[in-house]
């Protein structure tokens, strides 16, 4: 039997969570189907060459290349054209809110099966009011499991339409490189202590968190600090204090090289938590409170049950203290 084509679409959310989940699903599908990933996230650039999966970038409405109304139609038409080109049977959407263009594609092509991969741990945002109607348009709603699900008191927590799975992650023990191989792949010293920093930059408060975290690392002897993006503000000004040995590493999927790190500093997004902790990287989480994702709930769970440490994202001194040598738990 010919392999069916399945389109995995993702929004451009905060962080790489949507794209990482779609990549994990695509890898699992490769044996039996032809997965295609389409995404509004710039990170999709990393996927085709490294994972051998066909991909398309779709500019999100945030690019402002057209009006919102035109973008809804543009998205619908692009999805329908791709479905026709590839004879896809299923369109899976991983994102907080299925865009009108996604639902319009299903409405225009009833034979197409539409699936919503809907992460839990929502904050109480206005998007919750249309959950019922949006779910009713789907052939299936799937909730990727979250290790912190017992701390989920958001609007999706008590809904019944979703099928709950185990957590989704690109980290797989069997694929992960050894500490030595991972350090060689990243061009790191094999013996010096190494910390991975995965915090965002951009807005003022986010930049301040980055500076606070990096400041706490001062004084760690022989430390090498690896970041996934340059620690600079919008004007290119460095957010890092003097005296740290910093390196920006681009490696996809990062999950393969996580054993290179002695510790991690990370936002508490779905992806970071479900990659770093299964890889057993000792981590301090600093939540990003933007978006619908309830990162603080996830950070509290990780801290309360002893899997990681949580720094108070609203307290810069607390962030710094979590990395300094003297702070007592």
């Amino acid at each position: 039997m010919e392999k069916p084509t399945i389109i995995l679409a993702t929004s451009n959310g905060v962080g790489m969570g949507h794209l990482a989940r779609a990549s994990a699903v695509a890898l699992a599908l490769k044996e039996v189907a032809n997965p295609i990933i389409v995404s509004m996230a710039g990170g999709i650039a990393e996927i085709p060459a490294f994972m051998g999966i066909r991909c398309e970038y779709i500019p999100g409405k945030d690019r402002m290349w057209m009006s919102r109304e035109k973008w809804d139609i543009y998205l619908r038409d692009r999805l329908l054209a791709l479905v026709e080109e590839t004879n896809a049977k299923v369109l899976s959407f991983d994102g907080v809110i299925p865009y009108p263009g996604v639902i319009a594609a299903k409405n225009a092509n009833p034979a197409l099966k539409l699936v919503w991969v809907r992460r839990g741990l929502w904050q109480k945002k206005p998007q919750r009011f249309v959950l019922g109607l949006q779910s009713a348009m789907m052939d299936k709603v799937i909730e990727p499991g979250d290790i912190a699900r017992s701390y989920d008191f958001g609007p999706t927590a008590t809904r019944k339409e979703a099928v709950l799975t185990a957590p989704v992650s690109l980290f797989r023990k069997e694929d992960a490189m050894t500490r030595e191989d991972a350090r060689k792949a990243l061009g790191l010293d094999l013996n010096r202590p190494t910390v991975l920093v995965q915090l965002g930059t951009g807005e003022g408060d986010v930049n301040e968190k980055m500076t606070a975290a990096l400041s706490g690392l001062l004084g760690w002897k022989d430390l090498q600090v690896i970041l996934t993006k340059a620690p600079v503000d919008k004007d290119g000004k460095s957010l890092a204090p003097e005296g740290l040995d910093l390196k920006v590493a681009r490696y996809f999927p990062l999950a393969k090289v996580l054993h290179a790190f002695d510790a991690g500093i990370c936002a508490t997004g779905y992806n970071g938590v479900h990659e770093l902790l299964p890889a057993q990287v000792p981590t301090v989480f600093v939540s990003n409170i933007r978006g619908t994702d309830d990162q603080e709930a996830r950070a509290r769970w990780c801290n309360d049950f002893g899997f990681a440490l949580r720094a108070d994202q609203a307290d810069l001194a607390d962030i710094t203290a979590h990395f300094a040598p003297t702070k007592q738990i």
């Binding site: 299923v90 699936v115 799975t165 797989r172």
Partner: peptide
């Protein structure tokens, strides 16, 4: 921590839908 096998579970569900 439990295994993160959700990707395979979702892939199975999508495949079943695609072949239904």
């Amino acid at each position: 921590l439990p295994d993160t096998t959700g990707g395979q579970e979702i892939a199975n569900m999508l495949y079943q839908l695609a072949t239904a």
